[in-house]
Amino acid sequence: MLRRTLLATAALALAAGGALAQDDPVKAGFIYVGPIGDGGWTYEHDQARLALEEHFGDQVETVYQESVPEGADAVRAITQMALSGADIIFTTSFGYMDPTMEVAAKFPDVKFEHATGYKRSDNVGTYSARFYEGRAVQGLIAGRMTETNKVGYIASFPIPEVIRGINSAYIHAKKENPDVEFSVVWAYTWFDPAKEADAARALIENGADVILQHTDSTAPQAAAQEAGNVITFGQASDMAEYAPSPRVSSIIDNWAPYYIDRVQAVIDGTWESDDTWDGIGPGMVGIGEISSAVPEDVKADALALKDSIASGEYHPFTGPLNRQDGSVWLEEGEVADDETLLGMDFYVEGLTGEIPN
């Protein structure tokens, strides 16, 4: 009789929406491309993991593996996490896309969430942030504050996410300063402090007095501090230990609300594969405090730009804009569509150099 009662209770719970009371906590796993102490990308994902634990308490158990290389090593790490009993696994770097899909096909009852990719299935969702919105704000400040008219940009890999950021920063720097020039160094790494520092020093030696980065360590900040008279921007995390100079502001990735929402869906039995791409407005992209090293008029204009993006009044990719070869991309007042932005593989007019294959 007791067994029949329990089965009936379970059936009613499932019929009500798939949620089923259980004593065991939901197990959420995280695969990180860098160390949790990188001060940037992985640090912020791990801060969100800790926020997840704080929010749910005993309802959720989290596990993570840091510094997992993209490729075959990722397949092994994700597989091991699935075998360990994870209910949902967040794979937090673009290069984990195919490994995530491969492992997910073998574990249909596990939910997977992949950051910054575009491949989905019934048990794989995707999520990213509109970092290019923050790059627009950085570009405005860079264009106004450079004295040499030379801005250096340390880029990780030539994927649309990174190319969008370069274009957005350049467009808004150019609006403020028609004489500005960008030099892009491709580091081919997300996290390599020595390589990132070398890239920053090379750009500074070539005259750049502003350094932007799409890599994860604080090494470019330290290199700029050593050089003096160079400003930088925190990437993914605030990097505020280098404020008020060289770090004058930052892009801050806020993943905690998303992680809490998706784990709640697992608890409730309502999780479905989805694609999320949020920006400043919803709070997934934050703009770190603009430091006292920035003149008040520049700060005011940067904050006004931030607010207009957040409200939807302004889109960072609004025409007229041409491609690098001079061909028309966007007419006056025309706004880029998400499909083009998600696949962006070209520079806008004015940027020099070629995008590597």
Results as ranks from 00 to 15, higher is better:
Val266Ala: 06
Asp238Tyr: 12
Ala208Ser: 15
Ile231Pro: 02
Ser291His: 03
Lys195Cys: 05
Trp186Asp: 01
Leu212Thr: 03
Ser217Gln: 00
Phe182Ser: 03
Ile211Ser: 04
Trp271Arg: 11
Asp253Ser: 14
Asp209Trp: 04
Val210Gln: 09
Pro257Met: 11
Gly288Asn: 11
Ala208Pro: 11
Ser217Ala: 04
Glu241Asp: 13
Phe191Pro: 00
Ile211Gly: 02
Ser217His: 02
Ser217Phe: 02
Phe182Lys: 05
Asn229Asp: 15
Ser292His: 02
Ile252Met: 10
Leu203His: 07
Asp278Met: 10
Ser237Val: 03
Ser217Leu: 02
Ile231Glu: 01
Val294His: 02
Ser273Cys: 11
Ile252Gly: 00
Gly283Tyr: 10
Ile251Met: 06
Gly279Leu: 02
Ile287Cys: 12
Asp297Gln: 07
Val210Ser: 11
Asp268Glu: 14
Gly279Ala: 09
Ala199Glu: 07
Val180His: 07
Gln225Trp: 00
Ala202Glu: 13
Val266Leu: 07
Trp190Thr: 01
Met239His: 05
Pro295Thr: 05
Ala199Asn: 08
Val184Glu: 04
Gln264Trp: 07
Glu181Leu: 06
Val185Cys: 00
Pro193Asn: 10
Glu181Trp: 04
Glu196Cys: 12
Val285Lys: 00
Thr276Met: 15
Ala256His: 05
Asp261Pro: 01
Pro193Glu: 01
Val298Asp: 10
Val184Ser: 05
Ser273Phe: 05
Arg262Tyr: 06
Gly269Tyr: 14
Val298Lys: 02
Ile204Thr: 04
Thr189Asn: 10
Ala187Phe: 02
Gly283Ser: 12
Ala219Asp: 04
Ala202Asp: 14
Glu181His: 12
Ala224Arg: 00
Trp186Arg: 06
Pro220Ser: 00
Ala194Cys: 01
Ala227Trp: 05
Asn229Cys: 05
Gln235Glu: 14
Val248Phe: 09
Thr218Arg: 14
Asp297Ser: 13
Thr232Leu: 10
Glu241Met: 10
Ile280Ala: 04
Val230Arg: 01
Glu296Arg: 06
Ile267Asn: 12
Gly228Tyr: 10
Gly279Asp: 10
Ala265Tyr: 07
Thr218Leu: 13
Asp268Tyr: 11
Ala208Thr: 13
Trp190Lys: 02
Phe191Ile: 04
Ile287Gln: 09
Gly279Thr: 09
Trp277Lys: 08
Thr215Gly: 05
Gln235Met: 13
Ile290Glu: 13
Arg262Met: 14
Pro193Val: 09
Ala187Leu: 08
Glu296Thr: 08
Ser292Pro: 00
Asp297Cys: 03
Ala197Lys: 15
Ile290Cys: 14
Ser249Lys: 03
Glu205Trp: 05
Val185Met: 02
Glu196Thr: 10
Ser249Met: 09
Ala208Cys: 15
Tyr258Ala: 06
Ala194Gln: 13
Val210Phe: 12
Asp253Arg: 08
Met239Asn: 07
Ala187Val: 11
Tyr259Asn: 08
Ile260Tyr: 11
Tyr258Met: 13
Ala240Val: 05
